[in-house]
Every structure is written in C-alpha cells, then in structure tokens.
C-alpha cells in the first residue's frame, strides 16, 4: 500500500503529462468538432492538475474557473449553433499536413535537445516565496502591489473585449 502511494506521488506528474498529450492530440485529430471540444475540456482539467502538482493551486483553480467554466462553454455554445446547420462534407486536413507535421517534429526535437543541454540546476526542495499549500495570499499580494499596472491594463483589455464582442455580434452590423 505505501509503496503504491509513494509510486503515485512520485510519478503523478508524468501520468498527468502523458494523458494530457493524448487528449491534446484528440483535440486536433478528432473528426467531430464536439469530440474535439470534449478533449479540450479534459486537457484543461488535466493541465489544472499539473499546476496543482507544481505548487500553484490558486492558478489551478483559476484555470478550472476560466477555461472549464467560461471559455469552453463559449466553444460548446458556438459549436451547437454551428452544428445546427449541416456543413457540407469538406476535407478535414489540408494538403500540407505531412510537411507541417515534419517541421513541427523537427522543432520539438531541436528544442528538446536544447532543453536537455541547458543546466537548469537542481529543483529546490522547499519554496519560500511560493508559500507551499497556500499560494492564494502570496499571488494576491503580488498582483495588487508590484503588478498593479498590468492588472489595470488587463481590466481595460477585458472591457474592450466586452464592447467588441457585442459590436461584432449585434444584428444591425453589416460586415
């Protein structure tokens, strides 16, 4: 039993990362767009799990709230509206699939070599700034003091987006 638990706590991150890659592939290669969005939802939840393993539980919860609670609902909503009309059977992938895949595989391999060649130093066992087991207060403190200007800019961005989305989708607007 204890061996099992230590095994899981040690390899949990690897398991999460492996499953995340599978679901991410599902997002791109599903034939049905709704299957894609289900895969995207699972990916987001798993990424939240990865954040949790990296001592960032506030970010993990925000990830769930923003992505699972907001963004993907928008996607599903849009998909349901689009799926009401039968789209004619189009090819799913374009002609450059093989070339793109080759280029991206090359990019990933080159960067992986770079990553393995860079000495990042050992992983710190204890973290002080990122308060272990409760980063909420620490993040909030930094957000509202050091990073107050980007925070305000972000709120202006959201306001602009709100206005923009309404203007774009309002009935009278002719594109």
């Amino acid at each position: 039993m204890e061996a099992l638990i230590s095994f899981f706590s040690h390899y949990m991150l690897y398991i999460l990362m492996g499953v995340t890659i599978l679901t991410a592939v599902g997002v791109v290669y599903s034939k049905n767009a709704v299957h894609s969005v289900v895969a995207l939802l699972l990916t987001m939840i798993l990424v939240a799990g990865i954040y949790l393993m990296l001592d960032a539980e506030f970010i993990a919860v925000v990830q769930l709230l923003v992505y699972a609670g907001g963004i993907i609902v928008l996607f599903v909503f849009m998909l349901l509206l689009v799926a009401l009309h039968k789209d004619e059977a189009l090819r799913l992938f374009n002609t450059y699939t093989m070339i793109s895949l080759g280029l991206i595989a090359f990019l990933v391999i080159v960067l992986a070599v770079v990553f393995f060649g860079t000495p990042f130093g050992p992983v710190p066992e204890t973290v002080t700034h990122i308060v272990k087991g409760g980063s909420t207060e620490a993040v909030a403190g930094a957000l509202y003091s050091t990073y107050i200007l980007p925070f305000e800019i972000a709120s202006v961005l959201l306001l602009v987006v709100m206005v923009g989305a309404i203007v774009l989708t309002k009935e009278r607007v002719k594109l």
Binding site: L54, D55, A56, F58, I59, V62, Q63, V66, Y67, F120, G121, V123, P124, V127, T128, H129, I130, S135, A138, V139, A142, L143, T146, Y147, P150, F151, A154
Partner: peptide, 16 residues
C-alpha cells in the same frame, strides 16, 4: 517553482 519567484504565477493569470 524552479526559481522560487511569484512573477511566473502572476503572469500566468495575465496570460489566462
């Protein structure tokens, strides 16, 4: 996590 800096987490919020 690696550098023990909060800036990364704050920026993750901005990225979201």
């Amino acid at each position: 996590r690696q550098l023990d800096l909060l800036a990364g987490q704050v920026f993750a919020i901005f990225v979201m």
